[in-house]
């Protein structure tokens, strides 16, 4: 666990540096907490993409608590933010009866395919038999992209042609997985905006088709969110959840300067746990999300 913590800290170090150095400056402020300090704090939180609502909520709490000394802000903030995040297990759901099915969804370009490959690679390291389904039959090059990842990981892939029915690919893949004694089937899907009803319906069809073949499947429907995205992430999570009963989130691109603060509102308001975070482009760059560590890494100096 210590290892993971170190890694997370490292991967979040830019975030941490940024937020905490601002926070540190704030704490050096000598007088009492006044409107200026609160405004500074607001700036920090909003710029971390926490969103207006969450920021207002936190600031209100600080006012209510009648915190007086700037030095009290940091521990209070930490506690407050941790408590907004879910207190729940965040491991990937697998069922006792193989194959477990993991469906990966999200808007365009957020890192679905890469995250799926990272996840598959991790299962391979645990000596599980994995199979990949190329249900993105739309985006140019998507099948070849998954093929290359499959080869690197040593996982087989089920693919049809471009333009074919994504649900049919998923169905075939599940049949193959059952026949071949596969432990985990991961289904890659085409990126689509959450607002496009017909495209979201296509994902529902994938779920339906799989569910007919195996009642519990998919065991996980993972929504991939890009940390660079701002307020829109909440809309994405809301609509995908409504349509697909999303069971978890992968938050990608935390190796940049974006803070991914929107997940706080998402967990708090929509009850979807962030399970994993993406911290780079290679297979190893996938880390467990832990709310304590997340907030700790954001604020510890």
């Amino acid at each position: 666990m210590g290892y993971i913590f170190e890694r997370l800290k490292r991967s979040l170090s830019k975030t941490r540096r940024n937020l905490s150095s601002k926070l540190e400056n704030l704490l050096k402020f000598r007088g009492k907490i006044n409107s200026e300090v609160l405004e500074e704090l607001e700036a920090i939180l909003i710029q971390a993409d926490l969103g207006m609502k969450t920021t207002a909520k936190v600031l209100e709490k600080i006012r209510e608590e009648r915190l007086k000394e700037p030095a009290d802000i940091k521990p209070f903030l930490k506690r407050e933010l941790v408590s907004l995040l879910l207190d729940c297990p965040r491991s990937i759901n697998l069922s006792a009866s193989s194959p477990s099915v993991i469906l990966v969804v999200g808007v365009n370009g957020v890192g679905k395919t890469t995250s799926l490959a990272k996840l598959a690679s991790r299962f391979r390291e645990e000596n599980k038999k994995v199979l990949l389904a190329a249900s993105d039959t739309f985006r140019a090059g998507s099948i070849e992209q998954l093929d290359i990842w499959g080869k690197r990981i040593g996982a087989e892939i089920i693919k049809h042609q471009y333009g074919s029915d994504p649900a049919a690919v998923a169905y075939d893949a599940l049949s193959a997985a059952q026949a071949r004694g596969i432990d985990i089937l991961l289904i890659d899907t085409a990126g689509r905006l959450h607002t496009k009803k017909n495209l979201v319906e296509e994902l529902r069809k994938i779920k339906r088709v799989i569910g007919k073949k195996k009642k519990e499947a998919p065991e996980e429907t993972l929504l991939v969110l890009d940390a660079t995205v701002g307020q829109n992430a909440l809309s994405q999570a809301k609509l995908f959840k409504e349509a697909l009963k999303v069971t978890g989130i992968i938050l990608t691109k935390l190796d940049g300067t974006a803070k991914g603060g929107m997940v706080i509102a998402i967990e708090n308001e929509l009850n979807i746990p962030v399970k994993l975070i993406g911290t780079g482009e290679t297979l190893g760059d996938l880390v467990e999300f832990d709310r304590g560590e997340f907030v700790e890494a954001l604020f510890s100096s």
Partner: peptide, 8 residues
């Protein structure tokens, strides 16, 4: 650049 980009 992605139109959905946040504060970053």
């Amino acid at each position: 650049a992605d139109a959905m980009t946040g504060q970053d």
